[in-house]
Design a protein around this nucleic acid. Structure first.
Lengths: 227, 227
DNA sequence: TCAAAAGTGTTTTAAATACACCCATGT
DNA sequence: ACATGGGTGTATTTAAAACACTTTTGA
């Protein structure tokens, strides 16, 4: 009787954060990778992840890996796609269920950085293990696409934020300039945001009003997370 | 040493076709289900599917199941989502990677109908096994959503089609009336469609010009299948 | 000749975009 | 005072939607 090796089931996560780029003062998209410390593909950089535990929910597994890698909790977490091509891992058959997550950079920022965990700019990645380069590309597409038709910016700013800060999130992710006046109107008429009484001073210009997301917005974000 | 049972990996498919409804002459969305012939949930209707074979691609598994169930080949096939909640199958842990497919009804139509395979209207399903009701709901949302921002109608019509036929696909899936004049303009300016020299006669009205999809359209459909 | 869908033209409505200009603060 | 981003007003462009009307066939 022939018994082939069982199919392995893993969960990995593409973790995005906005960080100051090397060049201008503008922030860009970064993601953490881990260096593989065993064969196959030893030494190459890969997405954080691991085998699924029988008693563990898929999203729990993704969030656990994320916390292990960055020390952070995700402000957004959604399943991306199941990658399972026969040839994607030489020698064994691995089906990887990929999640993607957004984290707020402010919180811990440089917290966890070891020899084998490092953050990279999304547009300047090293050679990745397996099909992980393809996966990251796919996740970036989803991030950009979703930002345009949902209120995903929510996940990148804090509880209180200026409209400029929110706009900068969009500019960083979509990598294009957005007219501040039109952006303001779109956001304000969306009903997903409410002005507070507070303002943010400190800039050498007129203080900016602080906003917060409405309940509708947070709800919408978690809904769209499953659609 | 405690060794828990391994996680099972299955692939199932939500198969959509347009069929004449019971009432009016208009077509509606139908899907085939199979009756479970063993425990758990014996006797309940479920999505067609089965365990993933180690040497089989995910999409191959979905297409194989589809052909087995309907005798048809999919004109569109795309991964939907991986459902893997711990409690979704009592007793064992099953992660199901779900695909969704569109088939052209004309081809075989009533071909495969047995005691344990039956087509149901999407808006009038029997009680389903496991979390399959939730899965079908999710797939319907994706079908409707995708039809609005891509040229998915492509998969439901033949090579040559009238703009009315294409419009009826949209009306059936979205379950709403669409202005023929505006629909015509939108489709014509999209560049995804090209008029042929032929017309379709036979109706008691002016003959309708036949169209075909351009290469761009078919390409776009298969692209969007992986995004 | 009449019904019915094919197909064209035009108006209305709404949204995105572009851009001029005033406001309030730190230096 | 003046540079800078915050914030308002308005014109332009584009697309969606609504709807009147003409065309061509089968019966």
């Amino acid at each position: 009787m022939i018994t082939s090796a069982p199919i392995e089931l893993a969960v990995s996560t593409v973790i995005f954060a906005l960080r100051p780029g090397d060049d201008s003062g503008r922030r860009t998209v970064w993601l953490p990778l881990v260096r593989r410390i065993r064969e196959p593909q030893q030494g190459k950089w890969a997405l954080p992840g691991g085998p699924l535990e029988p008693a563990q929910e898929l999203s729990e597994s993704a969030a656990f890996t994320l916390n292990e890698t960055t020390g952070l909790s995700p402000s957004y977490l959604e399943q991306l796609y199941a990658f399972g091509n026969v040839g994607r891992s030489p020698g064994n058959r691995v089906v990887s269920i990929i999640y993607w997550a957004l984290v707020r950079e402010e919180e811990a920022a440089e917290a966890v950085v070891t020899e084998n965990v490092r953050w990279f700019p999304a547009d300047d990645l090293p050679e990745l293990a397996f099909d992980h380069a393809e996966i990251v590309e796919y996740a970036l597409g989803r991030l950009r696409g979703k930002l345009e038709y949902s209120n995903l910016g929510h996940a990148f700013v804090g509880e209180l934020f200026t409209l400029s800060a929110l706009r900068e999130v969009y500019e960083a992710v979509l990598d294009k300039r957005i007219d501040p006046a039109n952006f303001r109107r779109q956001v304000e008429t969306s009903g997903l945001v409410r002005a507070t009484e507070q303002v943010q001073t400190g800039g050498r210009h007129r203080p900016a009003r602080l906003y917060r997301f409405t309940a509708a917005a947070t709800q919408l974000a978690s809904q769209s997370a499953s659609i």
